[in-house]
């Protein structure tokens, strides 16, 4: 047998990348891992506490509440933005002057920084000076997002829909534009109804882009921080304290580094797990079991 010559010099070539990734990702992450097993009372003194923070977190009502709020929020966001985005994409023109007009107006919300979006809606919804809040109040509708949890939720959800539905629209539109005309012509010949065209042509052809849309919208909404922080600051009470807001309160506000580190890790693992589930389920939709060996 011919012995293949071993040459390990190439490892030096990738060394810069290793260093870069180490400093940008691995070391910070390991710091968090390190904190999650220790306790501190300031002055840089740490005590080993083992799995205590994780055990506490699992039994913490505060964490459970924040988690449930987060799940509810992401579910509502996906349930609204995905169908709405598809519907708008279907209604958009395919040719003529309407195309650039629609595309540009759809892109605008995506170009606005998060905290600006939060501020826009914070002011927009104010009962005293905001166009929306004031108009609603003068119509006799009891709307005040600083006092009423339902109003606060509605405000944040409407804001997120306003901000991010465009992303789903643009992705779906790209998917729709890639369907050759012959499919629509064949559907006409076959006498397919509008619903059948959507169900059997458009939806299957959009599967790939929709997977990306769902993943992006899920991850983003699950990690939402800036906008609710600017609008409600997590209130009224704790009603809009989502996981990342809770985490910041814990880490920065209360300086509970250990519990916050433990929560970060759990938070990260939850996102990873749920994204993997979405990916696996959606990329196997419509496949037969014998081929879907993911």
């Amino acid at each position: 047998m011919i012995q293949k010559q071993v040459n390990q010099k190439a490892w030096f070539m990738v060394l810069p990348v290793f260093l870069l990734v180490a400093f940008s990702a691995v070391i910070p992450l390991m710091t968090v891992v390190n904190y999650s097993f220790q306790d501190t009372f300031g002055s840089n003194q740490f005590f080993w506490v083992g799995m205590d923070w994780f055990r506490d977190l699992m039994h913490s009502e505060r964490f459970h509440d924040a988690f449930l709020r987060q799940i509810a929020f992401s579910s509502i966001i996906l349930a609204i933005e995905i169908p709405l985005g598809i519907a708008i994409a279907l209604a958009m023109p395919r040719k003529g002057w309407g195309v650039p007009v629609c595309l540009i107006s759809m892109s605008l919300p995506l170009l606005i920084p998060w905290n600006v979006v939060g501020t826009i809606w914070q002011i927009f919804g104010r009962v005293d000076i905001g166009l929306l809040g004031h108009s609603l109040a003068s119509m006799g509708i009891d709307y005040n997002y600083t006092q009423d949890p339902i109003a606060a939720w509605i405000t944040i959800i409407v804001m997120d829909v306003w901000h991010w539905t465009s992303l789903v629209v643009l992705l779906s539109y790209a998917g729709l534009c890639s369907i050759p005309d012959a499919y629509y012509q064949a559907a006409k010949i076959d006498g397919a109804s509008r619903i059948a065209v959507f169900r059997y042509i458009q939806l299957p052809k959009m599967q790939g882009v929709l997977l990306i849309a769902v993943l992006l919208r899920f991850m983003d909404s699950f990690m939402i921080y800036t906008e609710p922080f600017v609008i409600t600051g997590g209130g009224p009470g704790n009603s809009t304290t989502f996981m990342s807001i809770d985490l910041v309160k814990m880490a920065v506000g209360q300086f509970d580094l250990g519990p916050a580190a433990a929560m970060s890790l759990v938070y990260f693992l939850i996102i990873l797990l749920l994204s993997w589930i979405f990916y696996t389920v959606m990329s196997n939709v419509g496949e037969e079991s014998k081929n879907g060996g993911a």
Partner: peptide, 19 residues
């Protein structure tokens, strides 16, 4: 419209319903 003409047409590239 096409649907009411009772015509069949086959195109250059295969058109199938994937699902």
């Amino acid at each position: 419209p096409t649907e009411q003409r009772n015509i069949a047409q086959i195109f250059q590239f295969p058109v199938i319903y994937d699902t």
